Computed example of a mutant assay.
Amino acid sequence: MENVDYIIVGDGYASLFFAHQLIKNNKSFVVFSEEKESASRVSAGIINPVVLKKFTTFWKAQEQIDFLKETLKEIEKYTGQNYLIDAPIHRIFHDENEQQLWLKKSSNDELVHFLDQNFTHLDLAQNDFNSGKVNQSARLDVKGFFVGLFDFLENHKHLLKEKFNYSDINTSDHTYKNYQYKNILFCEGMGVKNNPFFSEIPVNPNKGHHIKVKLSQTLPENITIKKKHFLFPIDDERYFYGGTYDREQLHHEIDSSAVEQLTNGLKEFYPEDFSVEEVNFGFRPTVKDRRPIIGRHHKHHDMYVFNGLGARGILNGCYFSRSLYDYIEKGIPLHQEIALERFTS
């Protein structure tokens, strides 16, 4: 029997950022990964402090941005890789009214550090009303992040590439197969619906498609362009464009209507020819109040859940991993806006 401080079930942003907290604090743990294409692994990796439909920000945006940069520097020390891509978002304006709204909100205390007051005209893109730059925005190298973290976990015997079987948990003895555990953390995204301990938490699937395209004329800068969706380069030839939001068509197949939506959206501002090389989709776990769900099982006090990260999986997963660690290890209460108890009490 092997003793571990933690068993982590799941392999998305919640799991890996919490694993980082354990690495920092010299805790023993194993991560169970089915190696599926989760919503995290096919995500765009956008790091964005602004809601670009309304030019507003969100709860703890600056704190989350700062903490992510700090965390990625810590991760770089043991993986040897920097996964932060300095490629700021440029939001194409639809008309003069959006320009004026941007300028008005850029003087707001919450947005002054995010909305650049100097507009930019983008080459090779239709942007008659120019674009606004989102300061402190960036991207995560999603593929590099998962490859690097998984390699580290595997090399240090923290990774188990197998399906977790709930029926093998012995809640009385605190064992799972040949592991004696202190805590189990479930970070399963929409997979939580199959979890007998936390299946009732109110997370809802939001299906997101993106396409990988080959542009006939490449864009001159490594930036992220946003109009309806995000466009940015992923290698020397291909670009990422996405993603959609769909709460209705939840089957596990590609939706032709979503692909059409994406191709039409790209045509709105990219006037040259392009070809669709690949289509992917995933199911984001979302919550009605747009806050993560974090907490302890009401009966089994060594079981925890970390879910509902939504479209801001990177920022939410990174920032609230520390909140969860401090809750478990130091007894620091969770903020009521993220606590599981807001739905169960």
Rank of each mutant, 00 (worst) to 15 (best):
K226P: 10
K227D: 13
K157T: 12
P285W: 11
V305T: 06
D128R: 12
T79K: 03
Q64S: 04
E154A: 11
L72C: 10
L160V: 09
D168N: 15
N82T: 02
N165P: 02
Q126A: 14
R238A: 00
G148S: 04
R41C: 11
E188F: 02
G317A: 07
V112K: 15
V276S: 00
A339P: 07
D95W: 01
F17I: 04
F29M: 00
V30Y: 08
L149Q: 03
F129K: 08
L153E: 09
K105Y: 12
E37R: 14
D302I: 05
D273A: 10
K267Q: 14
L231D: 04
G10E: 02
I294N: 02
G189I: 11
Q62W: 14
N130E: 15
Q136L: 14
E277F: 11
P220D: 06
S216E: 13
C187A: 15
K133N: 04
Y245F: 15
F240D: 00
Y176P: 02
V287Y: 06
P202Q: 08
R284P: 04
Y239V: 00
H335Q: 14
K226D: 08
F18P: 08
I89S: 05
G282I: 05
I8T: 01
E337F: 11
N316D: 07
I75N: 03
C187H: 05
E37G: 05
F114T: 07
L122I: 04
F29Q: 00
L250W: 09
M303S: 10
L309I: 06
K54R: 13
E341F: 04
K24A: 12
N194T: 11
E154P: 04
A39V: 07
Q62G: 12
I169C: 00
L140Q: 04
R312Y: 02
D95V: 06
L122N: 01
R247V: 12
Y179L: 13
S323P: 02
L153M: 11
E260Q: 14
H301K: 11
E154M: 01
Q62K: 15
I234T: 00
D123N: 14
L185R: 11
G265L: 03
Q117H: 15
L153S: 09
